[in-house]
């Protein structure tokens, strides 16, 4: 009992000890968060005097629990964009204060009332040159097991991407993708189901392609870039590359809301975005950032491949997230 009382006391002390000149930034860990720390948090700390505590990994359940309990210890969180739209609808997010965060140069595709872009990326078709004879060129090739035998790898979770790829491969024109024809997509996916290896995290997708375990797959462009940088013999096709984004949000009731908004301004600034893009291979969401990057780094960005580029419809996904997920897992586990 004494232990419990001491515990509660200590907890209360810890809760009141949070200082005004501190804030917590949460992301997914690993090198991405390291790059965010170096490119955003460090310069921000130097210029504002506000200390940025690094927390993580991002966990949506944890975020919801904080907001529900009214005890929010995260001030800025890096989340996937379709989640952000759903979370905003569920009342979990603070609106972004665009009086503090300059909006003019932000890519309008990746910012809205409750979220500003963190970085964006494209799903591209990548293949291990040793495991595939000839070059694959389009999503349709991933469904042609005769011409291109071998395992193919796709993103495991119910998220924007795979459904669209199946539809494109089945001949749906890019501008007629939405609303998604799920029956048609799953029917198309059925044709290669036994040849699919799923990847659940970015690193896994790289390992699968690099080792040749999967001959080709749907990868994030930053991951393919890193493979090529490392000298792995991979090919990449940007045809019909599909853009998606991570965004930065402020959970409802965040304790250091003002600092959080100032941090967002720094993170989305041209300099912050340029630095992060160079460190991570992901694309900046500030249209002025490219001017501050080296020519080589710019060449690797999805911006160099806007021809035939398709923007995954995050609003559609946020709207139909649960419905698609139900179908998705029913199909996967069958």
């Amino acid at each position: 009992m004494k232990l419990i009382l001491t515990g509660i006391l200590a907890g209360l002390l810890a809760a009141t000890a949070a200082k005004a000149d501190e804030m917590a930034f949460t992301s997914w860990g690993g090198t991405t968060q390291e790059a965010q720390t170096k490119s955003w948090a460090a310069p921000f700390e130097a210029s504002s005097g506000i200390k940025v505590l690094q927390d993580g990994p991002t966990d949506y359940g944890k975020l919801k629990a904080m907001v529900d309990a009214g005890n929010v210890t995260w001030d800025v969180v890096d989340v996937e964009m379709d989640f952000a739209i759903k979370a905003a609808k569920d009342g979990l997010l603070e609106p972004i204060d665009y009086a503090i965060v300059p909006k003019a140069d932000l890519d309008p595709r990746f910012s809205n009332e409750h979220a500003v872009g963190s970085f964006y990326y494209s799903f591209v078709l990548a293949w291990n040159k040793g495991a595939v004879s000839g070059d694959t060129a389009s999503w349709a090739d991933m469904f042609d097991t005769k011409k291109f035998p071998g395992k193919r790898t796709f993103y495991k979770w119910s998220a924007p991407g795979v459904i669209e790829i199946a539809l494109l491969a089945d001949g749906v024109p890019a501008d007629k993708l939405y609303p998604l024809d799920l029956d048609r997509a799953f029917k198309k996916l059925d044709t290669i189901k036994s040849d699919i290896v799923w990847w659940s995290g970015g690193a896994e997708s790289q390992q699968l392609i690099a080792s040749g375990e999967a001959a080709f797959g749907q990868l994030w462009n930053g991951r393919v870039f890193a493979l090529q940088q490392d000298g792995t013999d991979v090919g990449v096709s940007w045809k019909q590359n599909l853009t998606a984004a991570d965004v930065l949000v402020v959970p409802k009731g965040a304790k250091n809301k003002d600092s959080a908004m100032k941090f967002l301004a720094a993170a989305t600034s041209p300099a912050g975005q340029a630095k992060f893009a160079e460190a991570s291979g992901y694309a900046p969401i500030n249209t002025k950032a490219k001017a501050e990057m080296t020519a080589d780094a710019v060449k690797a960005l999805p911006d160099a491949h806007v021809d035939g580029q398709i923007n995954l419809d995050m609003n559609y996904w946020a709207e139909h997230r649960d419905e698609i997920a139900t179908r998705w897992y029913a199909w996967q586990t069958k």
Binding site: I8, A10, G11
Partner: peptide, 16 residues
């Protein structure tokens, strides 16, 4: 347990 600890102030503490 996290939701519970958030309410009684044990979240984020070593004791919790």
């Amino acid at each position: 347990v996290y939701a519970f600890f958030l309410r009684i102030g044990l979240a984020g503490t070593t004791i919790g």
